[in-house]
Amino acid sequence: EVKIALDSAPELENSGTYNWVQGFKGVLEDAGMDVREMPRDSVGNEAEKFDQLSTGLLELSLSDVRAIAQVDPFIYGLRLPYIFDDSAHMQRALAEGKIFDRVNEAVAGQDVMLLAIVPIGPSSGIITTDAAVRTPEDMADLRMRALDDAQIAMYKAWGTTGTIVPWGEVPAGLQTGVIDGYLNSPFIPIAFGQTDFVKNFSDSRTIIPIRAVIVSKMWYDGLSEDQRQVVNDGVAAGNAAAQAWLDKVSSAALTALEDKGVTVQRLTDEERGAFRKLSQQVYDSGLMPSEDVKVWTDLSSATR
């Protein structure tokens, strides 16, 4: 039995990872393999999912990229602002740079394998309560919610301020003015019912929101040649399903926001370039070893 730990509600309309799972699962089931979806949180939180993959008690999980980074932070290159133009560009880079081989060598000691990187929604934009953002200067007086030190550095590079706030406190923080906005996929304000107080979305396409598909190495190594081929075909089908879904929803997500009364700033490539240019400082800020940054930037240029 292949147990798949879901990271989202089983909704095809709203979840990139669930589309991936359906594509993957279809191929495995056609080949006669037994697949079971484990509802979100039913096998535990991120740390528990990773640990169960390690011990072979769980076969596959849609996980936070952080799970891989806890073993080897190299993967965080995926979160450098503006490193990739879009999800297709990212997938090309991952494939041509043989990133999976490199990561899997590093995580082998934890008995897990990274099989795929899946977009969970359209690229992240700047979500704010009041301010309409078209340029970095528009953000000068804002206080933005940061996820980690990398985002704090990015906001600093943009000339604004970042402050760490856990996700659970974000809605209250926005409503009470502790923070003025955050960076995320255009889906998020609707999915979390924030459109009463989130009034602006700027389509800056800064980061591609992603999940990691991680499997138990013990399970994968135990598969026969044929089964392994089925799994690899499943991964390809999953990737295709997620990309097809993404193409469908990318523009719809912005209109959905407008229907909810959120003003959407559709930036030109030139306007986006201003954010991109300032973001370069983050690459050299020392948060990642410079040789790792170089691997990612070279790869990105080569596959653009």
Binding site: A47, T55, L57, P166, G168
Partner: peptide, 19 residues
């Protein structure tokens, strides 16, 4: 019974909660 091996991780994770 083999799932009992999750116990230490489970205990830690269920207490390591922000709220």
């Amino acid at each position: 019974a083999q799932f009992l091996s999750v116990m230490p991780q489970r205990i830690f994770a269920q207490l390591d909660v922000f709220a």
